[in-house]
Amino acid sequence: MNLFNWKRIVIKVGSALIAPNGKGCSSHYLLGIAQFIVRCRELGVQVVLVSSGSVAAGAHLFSQKEPTLAIKKAMAAAGQTDMMATWDKLFDFPTAQILLTHADLRNRDRYISVRQTIFSLLDNGMLPVINENDTVTTDTLKVGDNDNLSAMVAAAADADALIICSDVDGLYDKNPHTNDNAQLLSWVSKIDEKIYAMAGGATSQVGTGGMKTKIEAAEKATSHGINTFIVNGFTELSFNMLLEGKNPGTHFQPYEEPMQEHLHWMTHTSKAQGEVIVENDFNTALDAASEELTAQEIVKVEGDFAVGDTILVRKDDGTKLAKAKSNYSSCLLSFLADQQDKDFTQKMQNKTGPVISDKNIAVLEAS
Rank of each mutant, 00 (worst) to 15 (best):
L105F: 05
D309L: 04
A322W: 03
G318H: 12
A182F: 03
E365A: 14
I18R: 04
D109C: 07
V143S: 00
A96P: 07
N124P: 00
Q349E: 10
A19G: 13
G233I: 14
L162H: 02
G210T: 06
V301N: 13
G207E: 10
R314K: 15
S27D: 15
L364Q: 13
T95M: 08
M83R: 08
A157S: 12
L122G: 11
T95P: 06
E219S: 14
E261W: 09
S290H: 08
V45Q: 04
D109Q: 13
Q339S: 09
V114W: 01
Q183L: 01
L31R: 13
A161N: 06
G125N: 03
I230F: 10
D104I: 04
K320H: 14
A218S: 15
L293M: 14
L149Y: 07
Y111W: 02
P94I: 03
G200F: 05
T352H: 02
T137F: 05
D317N: 15
D147Y: 01
F91W: 10
A199H: 07
L286V: 05
Y255N: 15
M83L: 12
I230W: 12
L263M: 12
V153I: 13
G303S: 09
I361F: 04
E132C: 09
V355W: 01
R41W: 04
G209M: 02
N240T: 05
H60C: 08
I18K: 03
T68Y: 00
R39Y: 07
T140H: 10
E257F: 10
P128I: 05
N283V: 12
A199G: 07
I195K: 12
F36D: 07
M1C: 03
E365L: 07
F344S: 14
P248F: 04
Q97A: 14
T138G: 12
Q340E: 04
F252P: 15
N133G: 11
N107A: 08
T269D: 04
L321A: 04
V129W: 02
V10A: 02
L171Y: 02
E297W: 01
K300R: 15
D123I: 00
N146M: 09
